[in-house]
Design a binder for these strands. Sequence first.
DNA 1: GCTTTGTTGTTGCATAAGCAACAAAAACGC
DNA 2: GCGTTTTTGTTGCTTATGCAACAACAAAGC
Lengths: 222, 222
Amino acid sequence: MRITNVFSQISKESMEKILPCFKPYWKEYSHGETILTYGTSAPSQVEILESGKARLEILNEDGDVFLIEHLEAGDVFGEPFSLPLEKFVYTVTAEEDCRVLFMNYNHIIKPCANLCEHHSQIISNLFIMAAQKSQGLALHISLLHQSTIRNKVLSYLSYASTVCKKNADGYFTIPMSLVALAEYLSVDRSAMMREIKAMKAEGLIDGNKREFKVFESEFIGH
Amino acid sequence: MRITNVFSQISKESMEKILPCFKPYWKEYSHGETILTYGTSAPSQVEILESGKARLEILNEDGDVFLIEHLEAGDVFGEPFSLPLEKFVYTVTAEEDCRVLFMNYNHIIKPCANLCEHHSQIISNLFIMAAQKSQGLALHISLLHQSTIRNKVLSYLSYASTVCKKNADGYFTIPMSLVALAEYLSVDRSAMMREIKAMKAEGLIDGNKREFKVFESEFIGH
DNA sequence: GCTTTGTTGTTGCATAAGCAACAAAAACGC
DNA sequence: GCGTTTTTGTTGCTTATGCAACAACAAAGC
């Protein structure tokens, strides 16, 4: 159900009419490269990650780096989505080889002089992608709000168990390393490992390395 | 620069053509009322808060309530923006008397049979509002990622100082109670008060109650 | 007016979790 | 192949912060 291509539903013939209008261009980045730093890109651009994985990080004034977002195919990013704050620097870095689409933001928000017929389809796709982005951010906030490491990890695993492919025994593999998970949940990795170990001992979860299984907790209530 | 009205740039005549198309309707809520709970509203609706203030909260399985978002005039919300997770209940509650616009989401994502000329303007406005929403969520995540209460509060105040009206002496009043701020930053209120007190003693900030002034920190570096 | 509710402010105590430091295994680069 | 880097896994110590419990004050309701 997830849209990953802003030009979906648009025929090749229409594409040729649209291209001069939205002035899209593509660029490839290899692992480790900086795709953009907020403030340096044209503020009237939106970027779409078409393939690969990237990460949006902030650097605060103390020099601490925090992982804000994992970006995957179909994710939109750019200044219109992250207000550059004083004292914070936002950076998007490629975690794999990436293909990025740059699009003119002004054209999206102003009516099209050519009234190209698929203008509204593209904007609609962009709207959906922006909504998808909000879903990801809202999920992240819900996890960060959990007060204990245990609840953060359990909430994440409970979410992951609905998204990841499970094998016959109910085990699934999370899509990031435990180092990255600790960053994402904003907890100390060693403390998280300790908590995972404890939860395994208590029979709440099972697994090893990135593979997990969540045992449905007994009904706790009235 | 912030858009708060999805029908901005649209003339009254056009509005009359559009109305049967997007099937918008409005509803008023008074302080304390529940506007919607995710899962109960039609998943193909988007809601826009036109006036008043509201809060989006989650309730986890332990019964803890967390403030995810403050909603103000111009904020979009609804299921398309917050995936309802298992074990989490999302609720939007009016904090003041509110006026809410409900709009058909299916119409936004499908091409308009009538090809109404302002269709794309409305979608474009919605896109901008969705992007604005992402900005707010990204800010919230940046704050939650700060590892100490001190950094959370300082980062928030530093942001607030760029947004709130300052008086001649550089003091500004934050737009929520300290109770709400502690919820928003996901910290214990008493611990936050302790930290605010300490920062005042150290000369980093000044003020009382909701009024603050941030002293620019000396250059710390190389 | 009075009562109730919410906000600000404070402190003592217990502990969850950060930090530092390490080792083994796996993955990667060449 | 082999060296380097990353990931997983572990533990001891320390402290930031959550929790509980309180009091004074302000605001809201009647």
